[in-house]
Design a protein around this nucleic acid. Sequence first.
DNA 1: GGAAGTCTCGCGGTTTTCGGACATGGGAGT
DNA 2: ACTCCCATGTCCGAAAACCGCGAGACTTCC
Lengths: 172, 172
Amino acid sequence: MRNAQPETLTLDRVATPVGEVLLVTDGEGAVRALDFADYEDRMSRLLRRHAPGATVADGRAPEGVRAAVERYFSGDVRALDGLTVRTGGTEFQRTVWKALRAIPAGETRTYGQLAAAIGSPRAVRAAGLANGQNPIAVIVPCHRVIGANGTLTGYAGGIERKRWLLDHERRA
Amino acid sequence: MRNAQPETLTLDRVATPVGEVLLVTDGEGAVRALDFADYEDRMSRLLRRHAPGATVADGRAPEGVRAAVERYFSGDVRALDGLTVRTGGTEFQRTVWKALRAIPAGETRTYGQLAAAIGSPRAVRAAGLANGQNPIAVIVPCHRVIGANGTLTGYAGGIERKRWLLDHERRA
DNA sequence: GGAAGTCTCGCGGTTTTCGGACATGGGAGT
DNA sequence: ACTCCCATGTCCGAAAACCGCGAGACTTCC
């Protein structure tokens, strides 16, 4: 049950120290998805959910977006802050994702702090779930959220990458 | 769980011998919905389903579409054949709706014949269900399908209107 | 006998409902 | 220290209910 509102998205691939990432942008230069290449099928699933009817074609992302991603991995960890993102999702999820972008590189928050930040201090677990469903990894920094006791708890791209990203941001 | 792809639809009203009809068209002149004014809430519901995120504003439909509808009710029962329609719905539903448009004005089919026409001779009841969920009444002529024994069985806009439409088309 | 009405059951796609699971954390009990 | 329990929003899968039907068996009533 879907309607057909044709829209063509562009799928680019960028090499990084933690493996190739897939970068999906739309006609207006907004980022629609970012994920690691070894989880391509999951990303497709998310895309189908968030942009029903859209078709995805291989191509090159706008230069500014590509460059920002590359600069981030080279050490300029603030390079992603100016990028525009666009997602589907429920009201709640969008609120969570917006809150994520407010966490500066180099810092972390607990799931509890995240829940509190969006005004639903008791929806801790729900916030964690929404976090895990973030379709735009790295740019929407879901990796900056960790357990109250300091454990990394989980990451859709693999805990190793979460650790790497956090170290990378702290180093910078 | 919906994404936001803004699209504005136009809602027009046309007077007919069987009551006012609501006529929804999109920016490209395709018909997105048509229903009788006394079932407005149901139409809104269908629209929300088939065009999530779209907003509907009162206005005037493209002249060609309006004129076609008026000509149909004046006796030119083929006037609707050239109109473009656009719907959501499942694969199955769309197949059924396409098959409906192939039934010429003045003729009827049974639910069984309809099911057979789409290649699923045993999906009789499912075809009936899809028939009833047609969002574009009259133009997609779901009223031309009747029971195997000749009874009219049902019509979302009321059996009376179904009878009137069939008589009208036979007269012409 | 036979035409016409009733009842029963299976058909197949969609929708609704319901029960879990989940990238947590705080409090209470042992 | 460790275990158990609960709150919270969403997704997912399974199961059941729903129907704009129709064929076949069975009655009824001339």
